[in-house]
Design a protein around this nucleic acid. Structure first.
Lengths: 223, 223
DNA sequence: TTCCATTCTGGAACAACGTTCCAAATCTGT
DNA sequence: ACAGATTTGGAACGTTGTTCCAGAATGGAA
């Protein structure tokens, strides 16, 4: 029923689930979320839509698998450190960088809650929360806060990138646009947004992300 | 060019942007995100798709406006308190409750980054961060962390609800499914997920959300 | 009033998408 | 070499967001 790993080659141009996922990732990276359709994926793989559906349940399945491949790699590479806090920092940054390199990942998490991609992060974070000595009845809320923050940042960044790409903007153009809009808001009602518009132009997403992680770690420690 | 607010009624059954948004919200609430199509919206409003497009740019515009209506209401109602921390708590809970009542809102934020709905939250949170005495060069990162967390939780919850609805599950069914899956994972590799599966069955999302806010507030204070 | 330019309506039409279906091609075991 | 199971490729289906446009409704000028 499933594939058989019997050494011999099955066919000249065998079509495997892994190949499909790999091609999907390439397509997502080069053309964004809207660039992955079964038509262009078929062309790229020199086959038809039906053949793809033999190996894959539906588009959600495909996107989840693609997301999982990226996250599994990121988690594997970066989950090291001397202290639990260092591990959390490294893991969070690893996931952030992976999402930065593959902007579509951020919006893919919501397609499969509780499944593989999220699960990997839950486990790694949860283990470190345990090592940190957080009491058992607070472990889930604590890990959950870290995860929500990481996925929240990822989702927002993904949204920014996607909008920028759709309008043919660069990231810089996008920030420029937001800054320009915010700096012209009513000074009374939107004083904060106005004051933040200028520094926003040149801010560093990664540094802000790390600062957020530090705040949360400090909050956990301060209990 | 735009509508004229000249007192007289324009037509028996005038079609206004507000009416369209209201009908869209009702549809989203009753049938979920996939329930809002221009076909059923047309029927509900007893008109055609073209008439709707006269008042609204596209579906993104419509969803953003619907999201903004919910968020504006939630922010207006709940942004009160004696201390800045209390205001943040109240605001966060207000947004959480709004997202809980309208699950589609959580996934709508990503459609319009830097625009109205996010902006409202940025402003309110940012003002309180300022009152808290956070130094100017850390205000954005701090506010950003709170916002990312709030939107992250909202997005995950929305994803859960959406999946549950699509499969005809209740929230309880969904948690049951996740708990069952997690409790059968490999005890070595997924020790945390296994240990958390049981309590997850009956946990309180709102309490966990509030616990997360407290962690972040503690982290800000502990600087 | 009568007219006309503007504003607004409704539904047909279009292109693109995810998905299904199935006859043909290919493989595997006997 | 044959038969049954697996895998392929592309046509076809239903649905979606969006566009297009003929014409109805409206309000001000003559």
């Amino acid at each position: 029923m499933a594939k058989k790993a019997s050494g011999g080659q099955q066919r000249e141009k065998a079509l495997s689930r892994e190949q499909i996922i790999k091609a999907a990732i390439e397509l997502l990276d080069s053309s964004g979320e809207s660039g992955l359709t079964f038509r262009v994926l078929s062309e790229r793989l020199a086959t038809g839509a039906g053949a793809i559906y033999w190996h894959i349940a539906n588009k959600n399945d495909l996107l989840t698998a693609a997301c999982d491949a990226i996250i599994a790699n990121a988690v594997e590479l970066t989950a090291t450190g001397d202290t639990p806090e260092e591990v959390i920092r490294a893991l969070a940054l690893g996931v952030f960088d992976a999402m930065d390199e593959h902007p579509w990942v951020g919006s893919t998490f919501t397609l499969s809650p509780g499944q593989s991609p999220v699960l990997r992060i839950v486990e790694r974070i949860g283990q470190q929360v345990r090592v940190l000595g957080v009491p058992e009845d607070a472990q889930w809320a604590t890990a959950s806060a870290l995860i929500a923050f990481i996925l929240g940042v990822g989702g927002q960044n993904a949204a920014n990138r996607q909008l920028a790409r759709a309008k043919g903007f660069t990231r810089s153009d996008f920030l420029e646009t937001v800054a320009a809009a915010w700096s012209q808001l009513d000074p009374e009602e939107y004083s904060f947004a106005r004051s933040i518009a200028e520094p926003l132009r040149t801010h560093d997403d990664r540094a802000d992300f790390l600062a957020g992680i530090e705040i949360i770690l400090r909050g956990i420690r301060a209990k």
